[in-house]
């Protein structure tokens, strides 16, 4: 695994020490995890879902949610009721 590359994908900034440490530790974990390759999975239908249920639905009825104040109550930065972040360049 290229820890630095994957960390970028996950948007996690790592120091060079962390990089080196994780490269080693995750390398060990991956080697352990590789034992799954020995499992015989031929003919197994994997179910992505833990419960045998279907069509759990919600009727299309609007209901009140958070007030604007509640929604913004934890905003690290806000202005004019908008959540503010550093400018996003397309």
């Amino acid at each position: 695994m290229d820890v630095e590359y994957v960390a970028r994908l996950a948007r996690i900034g790592l120091t060079s020490e962390e990089n080196a440490l994780f490269q080693k530790q995750l390398g060990q974990v991956l080697r352990y995890i590789d034992k799954l390759k020995e499992a015989d999975i031929s003919g197994v239908e994997s179910s992505a879902h833990a419960v045998p249920m279907f069509n759990v639905l919600r009727e299309d009825e609007p209901r009140p949610g958070l007030t604007v104040e509640e929604a913004l109550s934890n905003a690290p930065r806000q202005a004019n009721n908008l959540f503010i972040v550093p400018k996003v360049v397309e």
Partner: peptide, 25 residues
Amino acid sequence: HDIFEHYTRTRGEGLGAEVKRRVIL
């Protein structure tokens, strides 16, 4: 300075080592 730096530094500084390891894995 930009949104990418915002994300990576926020999460780099805010998350602990075990969390980072697992998220990366």
